[in-house]
């Protein structure tokens, strides 16, 4: 469409880019910070930013689910896990592998490849986020979910059940002869 141009970005686009920068920045901090808890907290920012990006893309329901699940459950799980594994206050030395250059290489290579391919494929494509709004509402998404995706939905419920059982089994996997197996934190207290 001729009306689109790089030179005159719309408000939504500007917002998207700004939030995107926040997301990328916090994401970078998540994978580079020496302080694990800080990284986890930055992950909240990153997830929240992605939630806002969803909103900007017209996926309202997904956005709030993102906040609910990631902010309320996943991050709490992470913090919980960090505390149980005695994440120290301050920098954790040796948090990263000593030779990071292969990982950096892979990361940069992946970025280069993906961006190149994406740019080549979609440099002339525009879309209207508002088109997705009807779908992004609770009603639209619910309709799509239960009209077209009931079976995957049910399969997913089975998966969740399996994960639940698995998590319980894992955390109960202690035999009598294993001896005292207290959490380090409790042992201290």
């Amino acid at each position: 469409m001729a009306t689109h141009s790089y030179l005159s970005p719309t408000g939504v686009e500007i917002a998207f880019v700004l939030v995107g920068l926040v997301v990328l920045g916090s994401g970078l901090l998540v994978v580079t910070l020496k302080n694990l808890v800080h990284a986890a907290l930055w992950l909240i920012v990153c997830m929240g930013g992605i939630g806002i990006e969803y909103l900007l893309l017209g996926a309202e329901m997904v956005a709030w689910i993102q906040v609910l699940i990631y902010g309320g459950a996943v991050i709490v799980l992470f913090l919980f896990g960090l505390m149980l594994t005695k994440a120290p206050i301050g920098r954790t030395e040796e948090l990263d592998v000593a030779h990071r250059w292969p990982a950096v290489l892979v990361g940069l290579g992946a970025a280069g490849t993906l961006v190149t391919v994406t740019v080549q494929a979609y440099q002339h494509t525009w879309f209207e986020p508002r088109d997705a709004l009807a779908l992004g509402s609770s009603e639209g998404l619910g309709t799509a979910l239960f009209h077209y995706w009931v079976l995957p939905f049910e399969a997913l419920s089975v998966l969740l059940l399996a994960a639940l059982v698995g998590a319980i089994a894992l955390s109960r996997a202690r035999r009598e002869d294993d001896g005292p197996d207290e959490l380090p934190g409790e042992a201290q207290a």
């Binding site: 907290l41 909240i44 309202e60 329901m61 709030w64 689910i65 906040v67 609910l68 902010g71 309320g72 459950a73 991050i75 709490v76 913090l79 509402s137 609770s138």
Partner: peptide, 16 residues
């Protein structure tokens, strides 16, 4: 439109 969801989501955040 998603008020209930929103309220619960941000309340979940508060526990952090």
């Amino acid at each position: 439109d998603l008020g209930l969801f929103f309220a619960l989501a941000v309340m979940g955040l508060a526990v952090i």
